[in-house]
């Protein structure tokens, strides 16, 4: 039972990691930019929903939708206003720009809420479901449901609709897509928006479970990287699987080996995967013709 309880909690935690990893992966696949400031978009999503629920007094569902919409716009603006402008420059410029934007968001949150660690009112306040001795908490149920629905929508859209096929086409060849009349620039903006919005959903789901502070996103960034690495860079399904596996691995490591190792599990995963199987579980090995 201990084993299963840990696994269940790990899956709930891992579902958030999966969402963060997937949102990073979307941006990476669409624009080849690794967003080192992505954790701060997660944090921003959490803070926007806090702002709307606690300060504006809006109901949680409406606040969540508004937060996701706002972060979509922010993500698109970052791409159109900043990333697109430095496209001709060296790739390191993207990384530095992403870090700078992330720190800017963090600094803005600090400027407003600096001295407080903020509690979000409980929104998933219903009793846990007992399956024998197994406790399925309200938080876990909400996270499973929300992330499950979101993933189905995302993968359905990406693989089963013509819009999704267009997205895949641009991801495979921007030049080819441009030649057949697809607005690649707008596509990049939209995908940054989608990535930011998905990251914001992670923040929205996390907000009621933990305490909010401007540094909240840093941990999720590392977990997102570890999940992406484990699943294979650029693999959307791999990012989801990597997130879930990482969540469960953390709990099992904490439960059976040492709780001191939970914090470094993500780093261990990154090191081990890169050393032993750089393409991850579902990524494709890159071969260059010389």
């Amino acid at each position: 039972m201990f084993f299963l309880q840990l696994a269940l909690s790990g899956l709930a935690q891992g579902a958030i990691y999966a969402l963060v990893a997937l949102s990073m992966c979307v941006v990476y696949r669409a624009t080849t930019v690794v967003n080192f400031g992505h954790g701060d978009l997660v944090m921003a999503g959490a803070f926007v929903v806090y702002l709307l629920v606690v300060l504006a007094g809006l109901p949680f569902p409406a606040s969540a939708i508004a937060a996701v919409a706002l972060l979509f716009i922010l993500g698109a603006l970052i791409e159109i206003g900043l990333i697109e402008r430095i496209k001709a420059g060296p790739h390191i410029g993207f990384a530095l720009m992403c870090i700078a934007v992330g720190y800017l968001l963090r600094g803005a949150a600090r400027a407003v809420w600096g001295r407080e660690v903020l509690p979000m009112p409980r929104v998933f306040d219903f009793p846990p479901v007992m399956l024998g001795e197994l406790v399925v908490t309200a938080d876990a149920l909400v996270i499973f449901s929300a992330v499950g629905v979101l993933l189905m929508l995302f993968f359905g859209l990406f693989y089963r609709t013509s819009a999704g096929r267009i997205m895949q086409a641009v991801c495979q060849s921007e030049r080819g897509a441009a030649l057949v009349g697809i607005n690649v620039r707008a596509f990049h903006g939209v995908m940054w928006g989608v990535g930011a919005a998905m990251g914001a959903i992670g923040g929205v789901l996390v907000a009621p479970l933990t305490l909010l502070h401007p540094g909240l996103g840093a941990g999720f960034l590392i977990k997102g990287f570890a999940a992406m690495t484990l699943g294979g860079f650029g693999s959307l399904g791999g990012a989801v699987a990597g997130g879930l596996l990482l969540g469960v691995a953390e709990q099992w490591v904490g439960g059976y080996v040492s709780t001191k190792l939970i914090d470094i599990t993500a780093y261990l995963v990154i090191i081990l995967v890169l050393a032993l199987r750089p393409s991850g579980l579902f990524g494709q090995a890159v071969a260059e013709r010389v």
């Binding site: 840990l6 439960g255 709780t259 914090d263």
Partner: peptide, 17 residues
């Protein structure tokens, strides 16, 4: 005796142990 590091957002493993 269990450890919970700073910045962690979940204490399930520690609580269950």
């Amino acid at each position: 005796e269990v450890a919970l590091e700073r910045g962690q957002t979940d204490a399930t493993a520690q609580t269950l142990r």
